[in-house]
Amino acid sequence: MWAYEQRLQYPVKITKTCPKTAQYIISQYGGPDGELAASLRYLSQRYTMPDKQVGGLLTDIGTEELAHMEIICAMVYQLTRNLKPEEAKAAGFDAYYIDHTAGIWPTAAAGVPFNACEFQSKGDAITDLVENMAAEQKARTTYDNILRVVADPEVRDPIKFLRAREIVHFQRFGEALERTKAKMNEKNYYFCNPEFDKQFGKQI
C-alpha cells in the first residue's frame, strides 16, 4: 500500500521555458538510467531477497525513486508548459512535440521509448545488488552530464539534489551487499544462488 503526500521531496520552481533542457531532463524519466527504471528495478527485486532488511531497503529506495520520478516530470512540465511550436522546432524538440504535444511521456533523451529491458530482476541477490550499485553510478553520471550543459540555477538545484541521492543509495546497496555476504560461505560466494537454492538453508 502506498499513500500520496502532496509535496515534492525537493521543490521545483522553474520560470523559463526551455525545450532543449526538457529534452535532456526527460531521459531521467524514461531513459536507460532514469528514475522510472530505478523504481521498477528495486520494487521488482525485493520479493525474493533472502535478507529481509535488504527487501525493506529495496522497498524504501524504490519508493524514494518514485518521488524522484515526480521531481523529474515536474521539471519537464515546467520547462515546456508555455511551449510554442516554433520554440520546439528551434530546440530540436519538434519530434517529441508532434507525438506528445507538451504531454509528459517516458522516453530517453535520444528518443528511445521507456522499456523494461533497461533494468534487470535476475533473482540472485549478489547479481541484483551489484546491478543496483551500477545503476546508481550510471544515474549519477547522467546528472553529471546534465550539470555540464545546463546553466539555469532553477534547473541545477534539483538536479544536484538528485545526484547527491545516487551516491547515498550506492552506499546503502553496498551495505546491503555486505549484509547478504555475511550470511554466505566466504570461501565461495558463488557456490549457489541464495534466493533460489533454498536447500542450503541459512548457511549458504
Binding site: Y10, P11, V12, K13, Y143, D144, L147, R148, P153, E154, R156, D157, P158, K160, F161, L162, R163, A164, R165, I167, V168, Q171
Partner: peptide, 25 residues
C-alpha cells in the same frame, strides 16, 4: 535538504557544481 543528504561524509559534490544550492530553496 540543500546538500541532498544528512551525512557530511556522503556529500561528494561534482566539480562543475561547486556552488551551494539556494536559488530554489
Amino acid at each position: 535538504l540543500e546538500e541532498g543528504t544528512v551525512f557530511p561524509e556522503l556529500n561528494k559534490p561534482f566539480f562543475v557544481a561547486p556552488e551551494r544550492s539556494n536559488t530554489t530553496l
